[in-house]
Simulated assay, not measured.
Amino acid sequence: MVNAQTRLDFLRTDELLFFMSFVPYLIIEMFGTTMFPMPYFLHSVAKAVLIFAVISIFFKKTWSVYFFLVSAIFSLTGILVWNATSDTGVLALTILMMGAYKIDVRKIITVYLIIAGFITALAFAFSLLDLIPNLQYIRPDTGAVRNSFGIIYPTDFAAHIFYLYLFSAYLFLWKRPWLLSVIGVLTALFLIRFSDARLDALTILITAVIFVVIRYLQKGRFHKILSLSALTTVFLAYLSYYLTAHFNARQGLYARINGLTSGRLSLGKSALDLYGIKPFGQVIEFIGNGGSTETVSNYNFVDSSYLKVMLLYGSVFIILFVALTTVRSIQSVTSNDYYTLAVLIAVAINSMVAHHLIEPYYNVFSILLLADFVQDRDRRIKSVYLTDVT
């Protein structure tokens, strides 16, 4: 008689310990983005369970010099940011990143899609049933109604949808470009119609185009373009900072860009002038519209991830994170792992207009920069080969 195996039998010890951290962390932080009532102390629980991710590091079979170097630099930076701001966000990100080392990215993203997808759908359904608030905002210039569908703000709902679409495309939809495109267009139209989240909708359409282009044009001359696109994160991070730092409302181009991005340049410029940039961050109370429909008179929220992370956690951390992301992009090009590159490009574009770059409960790729992409890449290559032979 063959003994039945449980799902846990397919996990190594380090993987099991990592998921003992990641799963409760993801559940708690995901619910924190919804209108479900949740005791604040649970956020402390989410940080406490990260101890299992720390322990998992010692169960890795081998460690590379690169892993030790990145871990040491990011851990030290996280400690210095914590000392300057009392914020443990960088340390938490680093711990999860170290815990994900050598774990197949497909396993982590699958867990993310199940949990994040379920909680987003639950919030959506409960808001339609009036069991939790569906916050509705009116855009003054157009009168459009912006629904948040149980999430704390319409753009946060749209961000969840963007990342769920992005990682679904990465794992599943890349094999069926027509389905990827149709879902992308319908999702973008839904976000425009019901949440008026135009920028998130645009990044979904751009993501669909990137995946379709890579599916059919990843050979020959196009490879050179893809090689250059490995620098996308560096370029867009610098462009975001440059446009914001040099913003002048009296110059036509800047005024036009500011209008198209719903005032993001002017808000970012005000924050830069008021707070400046510190090496390891500073305490800033950003005030936005999330969680309530009451009018905010002193709104000062910075939406660009690059600007917000730099202001809160300092220039050192954002430079290191962008550098690590770029290294991962270059590794993707050299190993012909173009779909990983596609995700990094899509995240880089979205991060210009949204603030979720280093929040794993939105952008799970933020903790996967040291994970194992080889197994997933080989699986894709085999799948394409079998398709071509068939």
Rank of each mutant, 00 (worst) to 15 (best):
P24V: 05
A158I: 06
F280V: 00
L180R: 09
F190I: 10
S44Q: 03
R264I: 06
I95G: 03
I103Q: 13
F321L: 08
F18Q: 02
G220N: 08
I381P: 01
V185Q: 06
L231P: 05
A188Y: 12
L113F: 04
L26Q: 01
F373M: 04
L205A: 06
I358W: 02
A271F: 02
L320Q: 15
F317H: 09
G268A: 10
V389C: 10
F157A: 05
Y385L: 14
L131Y: 09
K107I: 08
A245Q: 07
A72Y: 00
F68T: 04
F149Q: 04
F222Y: 14
A346W: 04
P279M: 13
G184V: 12
V353P: 09
N336L: 05
V343T: 08
T187Y: 08
V70L: 04
T232L: 12
A92G: 12
Y362R: 15
L166Q: 08
E285I: 13
T77N: 13
A46S: 13
T6A: 11
V283P: 02
K269H: 13
P39N: 09
A197R: 08
I381S: 08
T390Y: 15
S329R: 07
L320C: 10
S332C: 13
A84D: 07
I214T: 12
A245I: 05
T334V: 13
Y216F: 14
K219T: 15
L217V: 06
F247D: 08
L135G: 00
I73Q: 01
M30T: 15
D388C: 00
I210G: 00
A208K: 07
L236F: 15
A123P: 09
I210C: 01
V364P: 07
W174I: 05
I161K: 03
F52D: 06
L274D: 08
L386S: 11
L180F: 11
L50S: 00
K269N: 15
T293P: 04
A348H: 03
A342S: 08
Y241C: 04
L50P: 05
L131V: 09
L166D: 10
S181V: 15
R146F: 01
L191V: 03
T232R: 09
E285K: 13
F68W: 14
Y163I: 01
T233C: 13
D141P: 03
R256M: 12
Y40W: 10
F167Q: 01
D9F: 06
L180I: 11
L312F: 02
S305H: 06
S71M: 00
S181H: 02
N258D: 14
V23N: 00
A354R: 13
I138L: 11
L166G: 10
I192K: 08
R215T: 07
L128A: 13
L135F: 04
L173P: 04
F235V: 15
A121N: 02
I210D: 04
W178R: 13
F41L: 11
L131R: 14
T34D: 09
A249M: 14
K308W: 11
E29Q: 01
K47P: 01
L267K: 12
G263K: 02
L311E: 02
S127C: 00
G252I: 08
Y165T: 03
V212W: 07
F194H: 10
A342V: 03
S335C: 05
Y385S: 15
W63F: 13
T94E: 08
